[in-house]
Simulated scan of single mutants.
Amino acid sequence: MDERLVAVVGYDGAELIDIACVTTSLGMANKYGCARVPYRTRLLTPGGRPISLPTGLALLGGHPLERATGPFDTLLVAGGLGHEEAAANPLIVAHVRRLARESRRVASICTGAGVLAAAGLLDGRRVTTHWRYAGDMAARHPDVIVDPDPIYIRDGNLITSAGVTSALDLSVALIEEDHGPDMARLVARHLVIYLQRPGNQAQMSIFTAAPPPGNDVVRGLVEHVHAGLDGDLSAAALAAHAGISVRHLTRLFLTHLGRTPAQFVKQARLEAAAHLLAGTSLPMPAVAARCGFGSAETLRQAFTSRYGIAPSRYRQAHGGH
């Protein structure tokens, strides 16, 4: 194989970051990594026309999607605000389906997964997409197993990634798969990626706070949880504090926070632990105690399971001493 031909499918309303993350990462592998088998990327657009982007820019340089033929090493479909129109476009969907048969592996970035789903390429597969659109995609495509949490998921020769900048994580992962970890680390350094995130890391930033809930009871309980993370925050204790039944408590949390009381408390404790790890030199047992974990080992297991990185490694990467 003289080169790895990579097709990136774009359309009106595609996200420029989705496309650029892929093309720039693979270009850096060629330039700085001296890839043994270089990548050659090709942007495919309907009719080969320029595509309009949500920011008001236009992207040139497309090749006609209808005339593209394989074999391709990789087919990637970009996401963007125009993903619903793209998924409803029979021309785009048909040619994506055709090109998938001519590609060694198939991938989507962000909401590009919706185009793959419309082409029937995700049925029975475990996939991810941007967290904001995961529920809608699951409802539209009940045969697709949608997991909104990971940065990216590999299921056989299919790789789907989360929102926007997760395209960088996906691209670096592809480079590592093709050329090994040393090449991937080299490209990551040139991209100034401080820490390559593993695919199973949660999409939502550890420090992304949700807006306060509109319900007074729930808002009061949220404040109570954050004020006493090392206390008894069981569902029974929270219900007693609010003067309501456990059943009503659970219903309120699911309605206003989208999670059970136990899930909310665990997430709050993990976020607080992340703050302490990054901003203090407290020993691990002290961090665990302040955040309501029974031991440093309990903290380690919960933190690693949720964020895909051990607390000690997180502290090293984010400045804690």
Rank of each mutant, 00 (worst) to 15 (best):
A100R: 05
A100T: 02
A100P: 00
A100S: 11
A100K: 05
R101K: 09
R101P: 03
R101Y: 06
E102Q: 13
E102F: 03
S103H: 06
S103R: 05
S103V: 02
S103F: 03
S103C: 02
R104V: 07
R104P: 02
R104A: 09
R105L: 07
R105F: 04
R105I: 06
R105E: 12
R105V: 07
R105P: 00
V106A: 06
V106H: 07
A107F: 07
A107P: 03
A107D: 09
A107C: 13
A107V: 14
A107S: 13
A107Y: 09
S108F: 00
S108T: 14
S108P: 00
I109W: 08
I109E: 01
I109S: 01
I109T: 12
C110F: 05
C110E: 10
C110V: 10
C110M: 10
C110K: 08
C110A: 14
C110T: 14
T111I: 00
G112Y: 02
G112L: 08
G112F: 06
G112C: 04
A113P: 01
A113W: 01
A113H: 02
A113K: 02
A113L: 00
A113S: 05
G114D: 15
G114Y: 15
V115E: 11
V115A: 06
V115C: 07
L116S: 11
L116M: 11
L116Q: 14
A117S: 13
A117L: 09
A117E: 14
A117N: 11
A118E: 06
A118R: 12
A118H: 10
A119R: 08
A119D: 04
A119H: 04
G120L: 06
G120I: 00
G120T: 02
L121C: 07
L121W: 03
L122M: 01
L122N: 00
G124R: 05
G124Y: 13
G124I: 05
G124S: 12
G124D: 06
R125M: 11
R125G: 08
R125A: 15
R126M: 02
R126I: 02
R126C: 03
V127E: 01
V127C: 05
T128K: 03
T128I: 05
T128R: 03
T128V: 04
T128L: 04
T129L: 04
T129V: 12
T129E: 06
T129Y: 00
T129R: 06
H130E: 13
H130L: 07
H130D: 14
W131N: 09
W131Y: 10
W131K: 08
W131D: 10
W131S: 09
R132Y: 11
R132V: 08
Y133G: 14
Y133K: 13
A134G: 04
A134E: 08
A134S: 07
A134V: 07
G135I: 12
D136A: 14
D136S: 13
M137N: 12
M137Y: 10
M137A: 13
M137Q: 14
M137D: 13
A138P: 06
A138C: 09
A138I: 11
A138K: 14
A138Q: 15
A138S: 15
A138H: 13
A139D: 14
A139C: 10
A139I: 03
R140M: 12
R140N: 15
